[in-house]
Amino acid sequence: MSDRSPTTENPWQQLRRLTPARIALGRAGASLPTAAHLAFQFAHAQARDAVHLPFEPAALQDGLHRRGLDSLLLHSAARDRDTYLQRPDLGRRLQADSANRLREQRAAHGGGRDLAVVVADGLSALAVQRHALPLLDCLLERLPAEGWSLAPVSLVEQGRVAVADEIGELLGARMTVILIGERPGLSSPDSLGLYFTFAPRIGLTDAARNCISNVRPEGLNYAMAAHKLLYLMGEASRRRLSGVALKDEAEVPRLDGAASGPGNFLLGEG
């Protein structure tokens, strides 16, 4: 009987600090050792759970209320998650009842606000739950000072990016920004995306939008994301457009320090 470990570690462990990739995992025979296998399964399970986690707008609505913001609960034309995943066209449009609510809202309170904020679950309700309010806090700090007016915040279940076009059009807002859960990665189940549109209306394509992605503390932080969005709003209002013609040239200092690594260590002397 041998008491040797049934797995073989790789003698190149020091490479792991050079990349987030799953390298030097070792082997059992030539296969993945149990620990590495289960670590992967857990990361995938987290990402899957993020995709299927139900959107709970009540907590969000409560938080908005405490900040003095009105909100509207809306639903896309995709009735459930399975439909949502297979029919992107339905996720881009509102259910008839929801569209009517927006028409009533506009009839009662008028349109013409500068910005309609939309929050939608997208592919990760977890991202919205974690990051929507902190991001809005950063934004609210600066919006009034810069003279922008806000329409009520729309909270959309089973929403895709383009649903903001219909909402903006129905509310008669000059611009929209949608905060939406991005497709979860194995190491990032809670990444929030922001999509900004000037003169929103039904039928716009992605070419009319500007995207700020990977908003989360480990990615682009809230303050930086709000800074980029305000820059886009200013430029879009001045030039009366958004999308590919409007480049994101906001001055953003690099936070990671862009540490220069050891470079390609496979070459060099020796």
Partner: peptide
């Protein structure tokens, strides 16, 4: 496929070596 989020040469080299080994 030694991809790296920022194309860092050391990160790519690390995955290349792991793959070759």
């Amino acid at each position: 496929q030694p991809n790296h989020p920022t194309d860092d040469p050391a990160g790519i080299a690390a995955s290349v070596l792991d793959g070759l080994l």
